[in-house]
Every structure is written in C-alpha cells, then in structure tokens.
Amino acid sequence: MSEEYIIQSHGLTKMYGQTAALKNADIRVRKGSIYGLVGNNGAGKTTFLKILTGWIRPTAGSFTMLGESTEAGYRKARTRIGSIIEAPGFYPKLTAKQNLEYYRLQRGIPGKDTVDNVLEMVGLSQAAGKKFCKLSLGMKQRLGLGLALMGEPELLILDEPINGLDPAGIVEVRNLLLKLNKEKGVTILISSHILTELENIATDYGFLNTGELAEEIGVEKLREKCRTFLEIQVTDAAAYAALLESEMLCSNYCVLPDNRIHIMEKVDNVSDYSALAVSHGIGLLGLEMKEINLENYYMNLIGSRKEEA
C-alpha cells in the first residue's frame, strides 16, 4: 500500500486552542499523480501542507511521506521535496540569483550552473541580478517555484503556486508542472483557489471543508460524476425538495444557499420540474441546465455536507 502512495495520512488533526484547523484527515497521494487540494479559506489546505513540510506539528494522527514515518525520517524525506508554502520566503536584500545560490549551498546541491538553469526554467534569467525586494509579485512567485524545483525533487508541495502570475505565467507554470510530472514522474501536491487551473492539470482531488476531508476522488471518477444537471431556484427550497422526493421520486439532488437546488437525475424533461413548482404554489425564480465543473462539484459537495450536518 505504502509503495503506491507517496503521502498517506491517518486521522491527521491540528488544533489551535479549541479550533480544529484539520480534523481526522485521511489523505492519500498516489505516486506520480498531480493531487489537487481544493477548499475554501480556512478549509485546512495550508495546515496540511505545513505539517508535511515540518512548519507545524500535528496535534493527533500520523502520516507517511516518501516511505518515512518518523521525525528523523521526515527530515530525510524533505531533502527530496520541493515546496512553496504561502508566499515564497527569501532574503529581501539578496538578488534572485544569490537567494537561490544560498539555498543551493544549504542543500548541498552540486553544480554552479544549477542556479542559472533553474532561473532560466522559471523565466527569470533577465531578473537574476535584481534584489528580491525589487521583484514583482509574479517574479517572486516564479523564484519560489524555482527554489522548489532546484535539486530535482521527487515530490512538489505547492501552496497556491500561481498566485500573482499573469495569464501567460499561469500557462507557463502549468506546462512546466505537466512536463515535470509526465517526463520526470514528479508527484505534485498542489492547492489552489483557482479551480479551473486545477481542473487543467490534476489527476486526483481532495476536497477539504472546515478542516475535514469531504471527498477524495480520481479524475476519471470525477468526470463520470460531472455531467449535466438542472439548477432550479424557487421561493421555498425545502418544500420543493420534499416534492422532488414524493412526486418525482428523485433523491439525487442537492440544496444550496439562496433556495437553489441542483438536480442530478431525471433531467430529460425540464418542464416537469417547472410544472411541479407551479402546481404546488411554489414560486419559480430560475431554471437552467448546467454542466458540472470542478467548482460547482465542490460547491455541491460542501453544500450537501452542510445539509447533512
């Protein structure tokens, strides 16, 4: 089992006082995959990544990373990992090149041209002599990515790596990550708010909601689930949901805020649903056929969990 998964956590929990930033998370990242960690602010994404990179210690639970499951083992494993957590951290008064050289020396990476190669890879050759504090947000992000890539890591842990990048930069980074994954077999654990970006590269997804893992799903299964659905907005969602079950025998639906309901089955005849509302005196505010993408899949998922709660 542990050979297949490069990261495997069991009941991982992080408490800050009485607040749980991460609750019993069982997250498994397959070797060679691009794992997209999806979640709102405060969902626990960064907390999980910080635990992996040693920034914080879990309150409970355990994890295995690159086959290691002890503190000393994690440190050994981390020499084979590249990471960006939150914003990239560098010495502001050193240049881009000096900052990378500093970490090259620290990590004992051989080859003086390593830094130049990395700068070229992330498109920063021209800014090599610029002090870090003078770099634009996008350039800083690229430098952070360069640092993560230095030393040919087996695993990349990237927290919001495309923050601050312009559209061309986003495409470049996306292609670079895909290339590293396809050609060098680098496993990538990536969190991003920009779900459309994750949709373009991820092979597996973990959906976090208020510190809990709501679902872990492969891209194939997700595609199966991502199909056309009917979004209906009524004046009384609860009453309409009851009617869906009793009259339409429909159970695969999800109630969302603003009295919106997503109906996933039996959507061939849309007029039946409008008629159902009208015939029972429920105001029909909107009716639209939609296709599930990652964003509304996630919204449905956390919406349905709220309903369950």
Binding site: T53, G54, W55, R75, K76, A77, R78, T79, I81, S83, I85, E86, A87, P88, G89, F90, Y91, P92, Y103, Q106, R107, L147, I157
Partner: peptide, 11 residues
C-alpha cells in the same frame, strides 16, 4: 521573511 521555513521544509 519566512526564510527559516525553507530550511525546515528542506529537511
């Protein structure tokens, strides 16, 4: 500057 975080993340 969060530079210590890099050192820790690198083992």
């Amino acid at each position: 500057d969060r530079t210590i975080g890099n050192s820790i993340a690198f083992g």
